[in-house]
Design a protein around this nucleic acid. Structure first.
Lengths: 192, 192
DNA sequence: TGAAATACTAGACGGTCGTATGACTTTTGT
DNA sequence: ACAAAAGTCATACGACCGTCTAGTATTTCA
């Protein structure tokens, strides 16, 4: 009962996830996904009605993955500042791909900002998840403008990824992540 | 001698400039440009051998435009901090389009980061211009790490544009620009 | 077991893409 | 005035796009 079907569906999503990241949503064709998975191009309609449906599925798995990553950050420490550091380490840890291709979330949102509103709303979902989690951390620190700080941190991480990728500069990436950690530490100190 | 030819060439570049911003490079077709300019699709080969050539021409006009904008900033004040404020005001002034479509430079670089290296190098040119100008301002302020600060400012502006666009939040755009002005002011104070 | 339901496949459709060509028209220089 | 050069144009190419459908295999369950 659909065991192979579910398997194929998952493989399509995984291949699309990588290709959307490496080449962008619009620059990824059904043929590209077919070449990687070995599933004939024509079959895709069975698993997904439209290309947009594949994007939705990809975003949903990304949300799930980041949710799990945030749980790991939550378990990393009972200190909210340290938890935010742990999240920053995720970006620093994927240094190579960030310098090469940028942030998977940010670059998708930038691309789809020029597309339909439906795709914008969908691609934004991961950012909403991260912003709300960050906001909770800053709240726990004791900041009254926790949501503003969450936007600032997300913003600065995105700027960092964009610059590091554009200038192919991993040294900048690490320096900037260090600066952000110091910025968080100072926020913690100012509240204690 | 080539008066109409130059005119058509210019009109193609102007239309492409807008379309590359509004819909992205890859999502802009020759037909789109033809529809706006009224120049038949088939004629483009006469003015530009390839689509990449159009991009190069667009980037070159953008470099020229930003160079002029920087001259205006240079003339705005003999205080480098104030000159950087003037540059930030350019972004704040185009609030609507930034929230709607993002930063024209940043979104182009993000898109082409997933394309050939030649296009990446070309699209980066505007950023190089801005970074070097900013670096000169920070140098004049007296900072020893002027180039780092230039990267930081560019980075934070890009993050700001990306978040404002993704969340369709012009209030965040203005708050963040204000924060950046304060950040610059503090850098000036720390050196005086 | 066998017919209905479900899972899967592959070929093909209409459309659009970037590019190229060859002919026509206008401008230029002598 | 008239050839050469520059500019303009319609048409078409081969490739690829996302989508669809007619058909085959497989599973389900009375």
């Amino acid at each position: 009962m659909g065991t192979k079907g579910e398997n194929n569906r998952t493989r399509i999503i995984e291949a699309a996830d990588q290709l959307f990241y490496k080449h962008g949503y619009n620059q990824t064709s059904f043929s590209d996904i077919a070449d990687i998975t070995g599933i004939p191009r024509g079959n895709f309609y069975y698993y997904f009605k439209t290309k947009d449906d594949i994007l939705a599925a990809v975003v949903e798995t990304r949300v799930k993955q980041y949710r799990e990553a945030l749980v790991t950050c939550d378990n990393a420490s009972d200190n909210p500042g340290k938890r935010l550091h742990a999240f920053l380490d995720i970006m620093a840890g994927s240094e190579d791909s960030v310098v090469d291709t940028g942030c998977p979330i940010g670059s998708l949102c930038v691309e789809l900002a020029k597309d339909t509103e439906a795709l914008q709303t969908k691609s934004r979902e991961v950012f909403v998840l991260l912003r709300d989690w960050m906001s909770r951390q800053f709240e726990e620190i004791g900041l009254v403008d926790a949501n503003d700080k969450a936007m600032d941190l997300l913003s600065r991480m995105q700027g960092t990824a964009l610059m590091a990728c554009t200038f192919k500069d991993s040294a900048y990436l690490h320096r900037s992540v260090g600066d952000l950690k110091n910025w968080i530490n100072n926020l913690v100190l100012s509240e204690s």
